[in-house]
Amino acid sequence: MSTRTRTAVVTGASSGIGAATARRLAEAGFHVVLTARRADRLDALAKELAADGRSVAAHALDVTDRAAVDAFAAGLDGCDVLVNNAGGALGADPVESADPAEWRTMYEVNVLGVLHVTQALLPALTASGDGTIVVLSSTAGLATYEGGGGYVAAKHGAHVIAETLRLELNGRPVRVIEIAPGMVKTDEFALTRFHGDTDRAAAVYAGVDAPLTADDVADTVTWAVTRPSHVNVDLLVLRPRAQASNTKVHRGAP
C-alpha cells in the first residue's frame, strides 16, 4: 500500500464550511490545497495550518472562470479528493419579484462552479486509483421553501450533478459523496444572502437551540471521505436537532 500523502482540494476554503473542512482534512493527514477568490484569507489560513505542521498550499481561484480552473488543474501534481464547497445564496424574494441577476450568480457558482472543477480534476482523481468527489449541496437541493426559489433551484442542480455523476462513473475508481446540510450558522452565509443586513441575518437563527456549525459539517465531510475505499456515502442529510425540515424549525427552549 502506498504511503504517499493524499491531496485534497477544497473550493471556497476562505471561510465557513470550506475553511473548517480544510482544517479537518489537514488534521487527518491530507495535503490540502485551499482555493477561493479571497487570496488574503487563503494565505492567512495556509499560514495557520503550516504553523501547526500541516501540509498545505493556497491558490486564489474563481470557480466560475473555466480558463482559470483549467490552469489550476494543470498545475497540480495530483488529486485524490475534491471537495466542491464553493457556493452561496443571494436574496430571499418570491419568484414573482426575484432578481434574475442573483439567480444567475447562484447558478454559476453552485452549479457551473461544481461542473468546472469536477471536469478539470476528474482525470487526476481517476488516475489516483482511489478518488473521491464531494459535493456540498444543501437540504435546499432536496425540498423547496418560499422565498428560496433561486437558491433551491441551484442546489437542486448541484444535487443532480452528484447523482448523475455517480451513475456515469460507476465502474471507475472514483466515489461521489453528497453532503446536504440544513441550518448552519456561519459568519457569512446569511449576511451575504441578505446583502449585509445584520438584523435579517440574525433573524434566521433567532431562538434556535444550537444550529449546526461549520465544524459540524467539516467533521461529517472528513468522516465520509475517510471511510474505506469500497464504502460510498451517497447522500448524507445533516440537520440540527431543532430543525425537522426546511420549513419547520423549533425556536425556544428545547
Results as ranks from 00 to 15, higher is better:
residue 208 V to I: 01
residue 219 D to K: 12
residue 56 V to L: 12
residue 161 I to P: 09
residue 176 V to C: 11
residue 133 I to N: 06
residue 6 R to I: 01
residue 116 H to S: 05
residue 186 T to P: 08
residue 226 T to S: 05
residue 33 V to H: 12
residue 117 V to F: 08
residue 148 G to L: 06
residue 130 D to R: 14
residue 20 A to C: 04
residue 43 D to P: 00
residue 242 A to D: 03
residue 11 T to I: 02
residue 17 I to A: 05
residue 121 L to K: 07
residue 76 L to S: 05
residue 215 D to S: 09
residue 67 A to Q: 13
residue 35 T to P: 03
residue 79 C to T: 11
residue 81 V to N: 06
residue 82 L to N: 10
residue 98 A to W: 12
residue 162 A to F: 11
residue 6 R to G: 00
residue 3 T to Y: 05
residue 151 Y to I: 05
residue 64 T to A: 10
residue 235 L to M: 13
residue 242 A to W: 06
residue 109 V to P: 06
residue 79 C to D: 07
residue 130 D to K: 12
residue 28 A to Q: 02
residue 84 N to Y: 13
residue 254 P to L: 08
residue 78 G to H: 14
residue 1 M to G: 15
residue 95 V to I: 13
residue 242 A to K: 05
residue 198 T to K: 15
residue 38 R to T: 14
residue 46 A to W: 04
residue 56 V to W: 13
residue 46 A to C: 04
residue 199 D to R: 14
residue 49 L to I: 00
residue 27 E to K: 11
residue 62 D to N: 08
residue 238 L to H: 03
residue 232 N to Q: 12
residue 73 A to P: 01
residue 220 T to C: 08
residue 155 K to H: 09
residue 83 V to S: 06
residue 40 D to W: 08
residue 164 T to L: 09
residue 160 V to H: 15
residue 182 G to S: 06
residue 8 A to T: 00
residue 195 H to K: 15
residue 26 A to P: 00
residue 147 G to I: 04
residue 46 A to N: 01
residue 183 M to T: 15
residue 56 V to E: 13
residue 171 G to E: 02
residue 192 T to H: 13
residue 212 L to E: 00
residue 104 R to M: 02
residue 186 T to R: 08
residue 209 D to N: 14
residue 248 K to R: 15
residue 235 L to Q: 15
residue 51 A to K: 13
residue 88 G to I: 02
residue 240 P to N: 00
residue 197 D to W: 07
residue 11 T to C: 10
residue 175 R to N: 03
residue 57 A to L: 02
residue 152 V to M: 07
residue 103 W to C: 12
residue 8 A to Y: 08
residue 38 R to Q: 12
residue 5 T to E: 13
residue 99 D to S: 08
residue 86 A to Y: 15
residue 142 L to C: 07
residue 6 R to C: 00
residue 6 R to L: 02
residue 187 D to S: 13
residue 231 V to C: 08
residue 149 G to Y: 02
residue 65 D to S: 02
residue 172 R to C: 02
residue 175 R to H: 10
residue 15 S to L: 10
residue 40 D to K: 04
residue 139 T to V: 10
residue 88 G to K: 01
residue 13 A to V: 01
residue 8 A to G: 01
residue 22 A to K: 04
residue 3 T to C: 11
residue 78 G to C: 03
residue 240 P to C: 02
residue 114 V to W: 04
residue 49 L to Y: 04
residue 3 T to V: 13
residue 88 G to L: 02
residue 125 L to G: 02
residue 124 A to R: 14
residue 155 K to I: 05
residue 89 A to D: 10
residue 35 T to Q: 07
residue 144 T to V: 14
residue 1 M to S: 15
